[in-house]
Write a protein that binds this DNA or RNA. Structure first.
Lengths: 188, 188
DNA sequence: CTGAAGTTTCAGTAATTTCTGAAAGTTTAG
DNA sequence: CTAAACTTTCAGAAATTACTGAAACTTCAG
């Protein structure tokens, strides 16, 4: 199992990227390697390609499992386990977002809510709570919005994204044709 | 400069979060501290509040500068420099996204494009290039989309996000009222 | 049940990242 | 120009994170 120069460049680069996206270098490399290989690979092949120890491969596989990013496959007549990436690239992006939301954003929202509940003791704390509330609302809006987007079927999502600047136009059309719901903040 | 328990919890939490978002723990803590303080703080106050060395504060400030996240202020009659967060929380979120795009996504797109240009030597490379292309297109779509969103004025952005699931409805309305441009992929 | 073929775990080590504090640099009042 | 008040830099130390490889564990064919 030797990587071609192209694949090597890709795999190493994604190792670095991976480490900025929530998993470590090796995990990123393993995933990248699986993605560009048509055939599933076993742990030995992975270790050999990346020149890492068997134990490290096992840790990486475990991590990718916890992110639900790989499939396991048995090849008849071979006792080794073979691994391949799960789902499409889009699905993997979604899953990474989703997983990070669970691991990072949710606990933050909880903390911010709890700090809100605590009565402020002085002006400084009132100010601080105000800022915490802003951050809370920002995170919540973004979270809900991305959940909506993930719920759209992929074709619609694609339309929406390709719409680009046109989104602005569509929003005005909406104003013309849809009666706004009752909203305490509306200006009329 | 002593932090209240609420502020302390917030600051430490954001230190941990920061380290998952592209800067290190200390930098996250410094930023969080500045956000919840009504008044700008000087380097000594920051160091004292967080129990870190003067040098470390200076490094952190420098890093926050490179992310364009803080303002510098001189107080008349005081030679020290005072720091405060720049812009609103939303602006800071935008800036972090933007900066990470520049530092992480752009180089990846460049690499992927270059690997495309290289002629494939065998079937395995053809397959790999196909996958690299998928990733490239995904990143490009997301990048462009988020650039569009950032270009919208905040009010419209807010409308859009609050629209949530309703976005689906608006898209169908658009189909009814806007003639699609010529598109080689359209099915009619 | 046995042992061969495989996988996982984890203590110790290696690599990387972050932090400290002393020294060098900068700015400004006088 | 000088020196006090402050900031920045950076080499080495400390802390954190990742990796190795041997031992423990699991699975399965015979």
């Amino acid at each position: 199992m030797k990587m071609s120069p192209k694949v090597e460049a890709f795999v190493y680069h994604f190792g670095e990227m991976g480490s900025k996206w929530g998993f470590n270098r090796t995990v990123g490399q393993i995933y990248a390697l699986l993605v560009v290989n048509d055939q599933p690979l076993n742990a030995n092949q992975i270790g050999e390609a990346l020149s890492i120890s068997r134990g490290n491969v096992s840790m990486g596989i475990k991590e990718l499992h916890s992110w639900q990013l790989i499939n396991l496959k048995h090849i008849p007549g071979d006792r080794k386990e073979y691994y391949s990436p799960k789902g499409t690239i889009w699905e993997m992006a979604n899953r990474v977002f989703e997983e990070r939301r669970k691991r990072e954003v949710d606990p933050t929202l909880t903390l911010l809510r709890n700090l809100q509940l605590d009565e402020a003791n002085d002006d400084a704390e009132v100010y601080a709570q105000g800022k915490m509330r802003e951050i809370h609302d920002l995170l919540e809006t973004i979270t809900q919005w991305s959940a909506e987007l993930q719920r759209l079927d992929p074709a619609k999502l694609h339309t929406l994204m390709k719409l680009g600047a046109g989104i602005s136009k569509v929003l005005s059309i909406k104003d013309q044709f849809i009666k706004p719901k009752k909203d305490p903040n509306k200006d009329s």
